[in-house]
Amino acid sequence: MAVPTIVRERTPQIIVLAVILVLNAIISPGFFSIEIQNERLYGSLIDVLNRGAPVTLLAIGMTLVIATKGIDLSVGAVMAIVGAVAASLITSGYSLPATLAGALFVGLACGLWNGALVALLDIQPIIATLILMVAGRGIAQLITEGVILTFNDKPELIFVGSGSFLSLPMPVIIWIVVAILAILVVRRSALGLLIEAIGVNRRASTLSGVNSRVILLAVYAVSGLCAATAGVIAAADIKGADANNAGLWLEMDAILAVVIGGTSLLGGRFSLVGSLMGAMIIQSLNTGILLAGFPPEFNLIIKAAIILIILIVQSPASQAAMANVRANRQAVAIKSESREHAAR
């Protein structure tokens, strides 16, 4: 019965995603058509899954961080750092496993840095992670020495960004695997509950024996690892590390995905599935805008307007109003029923 619960809890996200996909199909009639090209699935829907990979990965880490009442602004910059590290390792002759290990290690280190500032020094998360957000692009530029570090002749790393496995693009495979792992770990153990407890009240959970420092360190570390994975994908996708632009503003998209997915910025209850759907909603929107062929000046306005509508529909006030309507209807139904009874 697990699936129906998820469907019931995520009804608003499912409806929004469905509406946007249908709108896309109206704008671009071939939107749902998927064919096999070069032995891989090819079509706009696949593009949505593929292009959404970085934000999806960031959103997984971001959900856990936000659930502890934190926020991680540094993920875009960590993507740039890790992309630079991966590009410089592979171009200096390291093997793919060594490159990936090095890249993930750097992402982990960035996450632990954020976690240490938040968990050990009790610095507010928005400020603690702002440090790396600002400094990160500088660090990435130092690594690439200010150029776009390309690796056109390294097919093994390029494969991570544009190869395919089981006919699906690699980034899609990677984010699905990471998402399943994350969901299993937090929901098949008490970890998810402990994270929520810290988000609701860190002091109370510490007093009741939750090791909040270690868990806080861990969620920021996971966020760093997710950002590292996204960074490797982004670099591999364009066969180069672009320190200036890799992951630029993606922290905002990731936070938005989490919020659209129904997790509150105040911490506590969270939903990874919701965040994944949030990321897909954002990417469907982006792809739809590109397919629509409006002048680019309208891109951000359209995106902002649609997101505003989504947030208004999800807002507590309109949720309450809808609940009211539903309750009234029920009351009316019960009343008329009892009237019928009385008439009899």
Partner: peptide
């Protein structure tokens, strides 16, 4: 026939071109 911003970057250039081709 189509004109869209790619923000001067490789990533966006690739993503937007993908959508041009599909459309």
């Amino acid at each position: 026939i189509r004109s869209q911003t790619g923000d001067f970057t490789r990533t966006k250039g690739k993503e937007v071109m993908e959508s041009f081709i599909k459309a």
